[in-house]
């Protein structure tokens, strides 16, 4: 048996680090990496709470199912966002978020 709160502490630290990266970085890829950190903390929370609430039951794995959904969505989101980053780099000749002042291509 392990207590739940160390997992939540780790998830909180990851969430804070991800938020810090998103706020302080200007590079588009770096901002995406910060969002990935936030999603990792969400995944850890989901699996930990599923284990807490349904640890004795092998028939209820809703937390795991939602985590798999998060993984799929994140994979798709990363592909799309990085393609858009590449498009921005090609059009603006820079990946700095401060240089993108207009949505017009």
């Amino acid at each position: 048996m392990m207590p739940l709160y160390p997992f939540l502490v780790v998830a909180s630290i990851l969430l804070a680090l991800g938020l810090f990266v998103v706020v302080t970085r200007r590079h588009l890829i770096a901002i995406l990496i910060g969002i990935e950190l936030i999603l990792c903390s969400a995944s850890l929370n989901l699996v930990a709470f599923n284990q807490l609430l349904h640890g004795n039951s092998t028939s209820i794995l809703e937390g795991h199912a939602f985590m798999v959904l998060i993984i799929l969505l994140t994979s798709a989101r990363v592909s799309v966002a990085l393609s858009l980053c590449f498009l921005v780099f090609r059009n603006f000749n820079s990946a700095d978020a401060q240089h993108i002042m207009t949505l017009k291509g």
């Binding site: 739940l4 199912a65 798999v68």
Partner: peptide, 20 residues
């Protein structure tokens, strides 16, 4: 009551598919 059981469940893959 915030203790987590760290024992592997018996049939996780089938139940994961059903839950999803």
């Amino acid at each position: 009551v915030t203790e987590i059981r760290v024992v592997a469940p018996e049939m996780p893959l089938l139940n994961l598919g059903k839950s999803m």
